[in-house]
Design a protein around this nucleic acid. Structure first.
Lengths: 251, 251
DNA sequence: CGCTTTATTGAGAGATATCAATACTTGTGG
DNA sequence: CCACAAGTATTGATATCTCTCAATAAAGCG
């Protein structure tokens, strides 16, 4: 774990391209400037390195600057549940606030960098900036909602539906960050996808092959191309929010 | 849904027995008095009535005064996932903050009453009372952690383990509220337990019968007695936090 | 007390897991 | 630049847990 103490010129939220997806959403330029002082250091992580471990005391929360991380819970017998994959702009460590120490493990899936947000200082600032306070509540609430939709998936959907939903969720989150949403690299292994979705790696593999056969996707290793979005949405039991009828296949 | 506008004498958080489990945890008497003004009304719900529906705009969050509620997500095809069961002192409606409208449905499992906390007024107050602000963050974070443990259960545990964990979780939460923790009434139907645990009603029924045969519990309809706590904890893949070795069965 | 809802139990079916073999990738060192 | 090793992914065959369908029983309700 490599700590970075940014100099004056590059530590500023006000200059960060992630501003619109991260903590400062909705803040005036003036208020963002106040946040700048919060992020005094960053951390660079190599693939496989952990940002925090369950049980270690919470002093900070983190925002992903680049890269991808996973959070997971593990059982004494070795079983493991991946709770989430975290993309740039997303906040990590929130599960530690309740008890004062992290409940999960956070591990980098690729070389990643996160900004360290000292939590006490953040709470102080949030009391001074109502928009920031509300934004933080929204972040926490959305995190909750995300987990609850994940619960719906694990509790009520079949493997095929879970996987389709997972691919679409990734696609949406990439799109929200300005990336193309129909072709990307999966940063996580099949094992990790399986753990996240509560299914075995072999089932993940089979379902992906089946999707490819049906012409829904093309997949080569971890590079995936979503061909028939509407079809995937249908499989996932959802409707395409960007459905374009003119592209609908006829007959 | 029956609105109650409490008179001066009985609307006060400062007088409520739930103070130590609810929003005011950790606040000084002086600060609790400030909260009193937040809760201007309450709602009485009959069994089956809903407190809010997904999509309706969030103006308030709620704390359970007495009774039990469930929150659930439903799919267009009729499938349903129960996300949580909510006991006195727990806060409801947090999933609505992110988008400004509730994401789930909240429905009473029995006659219940909840306090209405106007959210804007609450945020104002939280900026003035640091302890209240932090307490709210803790509540949100614990909610998150609870859902994440639920994810672990649905994603990685077998039906038997999920059910044992569920019974113990209920037991713990009742104990935290000062109720006896080894004998209580289930306020939810088998169907609701099944939905919460991502298993079918028949499986719930079979597992409960099996637990009873093994001497882990006694169950008659919805009245349940936990006989062998340690055994249940073992089944759930956890360790009894209140394990008393002197009660350990010998041989 | 009969009717409706809820829960239990049994038998068989099905989705996903497990076990096993093969193939593909990636990285390393000669 | 190729060969080998270690890790990762695919595919097949079989097993198993849980679901589904069905019948019965028990409880709650008017």
């Amino acid at each position: 774990m490599n700590y970075i103490f940014p100099d004056e010129s590059n530590n500023k939220c006000s200059l960060c391209v992630l501003g619109q997806f991260c903590l400062p959403v909705g803040l005036s330029a003036e208020d963002v400037a106040k946040i700048d002082s919060l992020v005094k250091e960053r951390v660079r992580l190599q693939k496989g390195e952990s940002l925090y471990r369950h049980g270690s005391p919470l002093t900070s929360v983190y925002s992903v600057r680049f890269g991808t991380l996973k959070t997971e819970y593990s059982l004494p017998d070795g079983r493991l549940q991946i709770i989430g994959f975290h993309l740039p702009g997303e906040i990590l460590g929130l599960d530690g606030i309740g008890e004062g120490h992290y409940q999960s493990d956070a591990i980098a899936l690729e070389e990643s960098e996160v900004c360290i947000i000292r939590f006490e200082a953040f709470e102080d600032l949030a009391r001074q900036i109502p928009v920031l306070q509300h934004q933080f509540h929204r972040i926490l609430s959305r995190e909750l909602t995300q987990d609850q939709r994940h619960l719906l998936s694990l509790g009520s959907l079949r493997a095929e539906e879970r996987l389709a939903g997972f691919l679409l969720n990734l696609s949406q989150r990439l799109a929200a960050r300005g990336y193309i949403n129909n072709e990307f690299d999966l940063r996580m292994s099949r094992v990790e996808i399986g753990s996240y979705l509560g299914i075995q790696i072999e089932t993940v593999s089979r379902m992906l092959s089946r999707f490819a056969e049906s012409g829904l996707i093309q997949i080569k290793q971890r590079h995936i191309k979503l061909i028939d979005m509407d079809g995937l949405y249908e499989l996932a039991g959802q409707t395409n929010p960007h459905h374009n009828p003119s592209l609908k296949k006829t007959g």
